[in-house]
Computed example of a mutant assay.
Amino acid sequence: MSLTHHDATVPDEGSRPGPRILLHSDDPAVRERVRTAVGPRLAVGAPEITWHEAATHAGVMDMADVASFDLVILDGEADKSGGMGLCRQMKDEVYGCPPVVVLTGRPQDAWLASWSLADATVSRPLDAIEVQRTVAQQLGAVRPH
């Protein structure tokens, strides 16, 4: 069963035992690149990741109100409402906010992501190995180097 809010679909809470990741970008190609980089699971034999997607600020906040996630990935370059402001809002307003990764436009934007209280950043161009490593670290699947 699915609930639909604005631009977001939230599957049944008990549908999968693997990590639940909320992925935000107004660009479907960015969302696809992130999902492809991370892959269906964090390691061989690990449970499958359940992806939830939102294209707008309202969609992310609606989903955060009705479901819990293990990780949130926000596009800092999204139009109208970028991921950095959204991250700051989530950290201030969402009780027990999960770790948040912000996708930045360039490495020099990491300082701004620190204002947003992001737990980690990945800068463009998105490197598949870096995206996967960062997601795994934030989910506790690997130790930081």
Rank of each mutant, 00 (worst) to 15 (best):
A58Q: 10
E130T: 12
V10F: 08
P19F: 06
I129C: 07
S116R: 03
D12A: 11
P144Y: 13
D12I: 14
C87N: 13
L103E: 11
F69P: 14
R106Q: 08
T134E: 05
A64K: 01
S123W: 13
R16D: 09
S81T: 06
V10I: 15
I49E: 04
R143K: 06
R16F: 05
G45R: 07
W111E: 11
A141E: 14
P98Q: 02
T134C: 04
F69R: 08
R20E: 03
L42V: 15
A113R: 12
V72M: 15
G18P: 11
H5P: 00
L103I: 15
M84V: 12
D70Y: 10
P11S: 05
Q108Y: 09
G45I: 01
V94C: 03
R143S: 06
A8C: 13
T4F: 08
A113G: 14
A29Q: 14
P99G: 00
Y95E: 03
P47I: 02
A141L: 05
M1N: 03
V102H: 05
A118D: 03
A54Y: 07
P99K: 00
P40G: 03
W51S: 01
D127A: 01
G82N: 12
P98S: 01
P28E: 10
P125M: 02
Q108G: 04
C87Q: 13
V131I: 09
E93R: 12
V94Q: 09
S68T: 10
D7H: 13
D65L: 00
K91T: 08
R16K: 03
V34D: 10
H52F: 03
S81A: 09
H24Q: 12
L71V: 09
R33C: 11
G85H: 08
M1Q: 05
V60R: 09
A37V: 06
T4V: 11
D70G: 07
V44A: 10
C87A: 15
L126M: 12
V10K: 06
L112Q: 12
G76Y: 10
M1V: 07
H52I: 07
G105K: 11
D12M: 12
Q132D: 07
A110W: 00
P47Y: 10
